[in-house]
Design a protein around this nucleic acid. Structure first.
Length: 237
RNA sequence: CCGACUCUGACCCUA
């Protein structure tokens, strides 16, 4: 038998979040009790498109059914509220899972960065470590964005050095983030150095570095890189 | 046991 959770997940991957929610609704109308996986999928569906109203209803159902103590369900809610800018709601859910896990922290940090509170994001970054939750790649990506939003270039350099120390610099997504962040600071030389040292470059790496030169008026360099991009083999997923 | 959560460029949208 195929579970409803799997159906909802499948539909949200190949189809619309709207379809996922319809499936979820059908499931409950048929008197079936959604499990924690169905709830997390349904919440994720609500985090797209402006479906926060549905998300609030979902939150109520989740609390009623005591699924809010499930860390993955809670993390989906935190992410949904964070992205929508409802950081008080996000914090409320976060509190119910106590320390949660690294994803809980990352979702909170992302929310603050995206809604103009980079300082709070940095505080959370420090707090999680005090509470014994080690940051992961996603955390570092968020924190690069936080420092960027705060205009803290020196801190970017420090995080960058730590990536070189730890080997995280070979992560394509983090390196791409660094390229973009340095570009936005106008540090095209630093951006290019990160780009040039990357073991694997994807289309995002190229776009970020070309975009940096173009945005800062170095059209010649941008064009040159663009030509090189066409010449070299680029792996696109 | 299986299915669920968080990080990257441009475009688009908004302003």
């Amino acid at each position: 038998m195929v579970s409803w959770g799997a159906l909802i997940t499948g539909s949200s991957k190949s189809g619309s979040s709207f379809q996922s929610l319809q499936l979820f609704e059908r499931m409950t109308l048929e008197g079936l009790q959604p499990d924690e996986v169905a709830f997390s999928c349904a919440v994720k569906a609500c985090s797209r498109n402006d479906l926060l109203k549905d998300g609030m209803l979902m939150y109520n159902m989740i609390v009623k059914n005591s699924f809010d103590s499930n860390v993955v369900v809670a993390n989906s809610l935190i992410d949904m509220f964070s992205k929508a800018g409802c950081l008080n709601e996000a914090q409320k859910v976060f509190t119910t899972v106590h320390v949660g896990n690294v994803v809980s922290w990352n979702a909170m940090i992302t929310g603050h960065v995206q809604h103009g509170n980079g300082l709070r994001a940095v505080e959370l970054f420090e707090e999680m470590q005090q509470k014994g939750v080690p940051p992961d790649k996603a955390t570092y990506g968020c924190i690069l964005r936080a420092f960027s939003s705060l205009g803290m270039l020196e801190e970017e350099y420090l995080v960058h050095s730590s990536f070189i120390q730890s080997g995280l610099i070979s992560d394509t997504i983090l390196a791409n983030t660094l390229v973009d962040v340095y570009s936005k600071f106008g540090r095209l030389d630093d951006a290019y150095k990160v780009f040039n040292d990357m073991p694997f470059r994807d289309v995002v790496s190229w776009s970020a570095v070309v975009g940096g030169y173009a945005h800062h008026g170095n059209n010649h360099k941008a064009f040159e890189l663009f030509e090189r991009m066409k010449r070299e083999h680029i792996e696109v997923d």
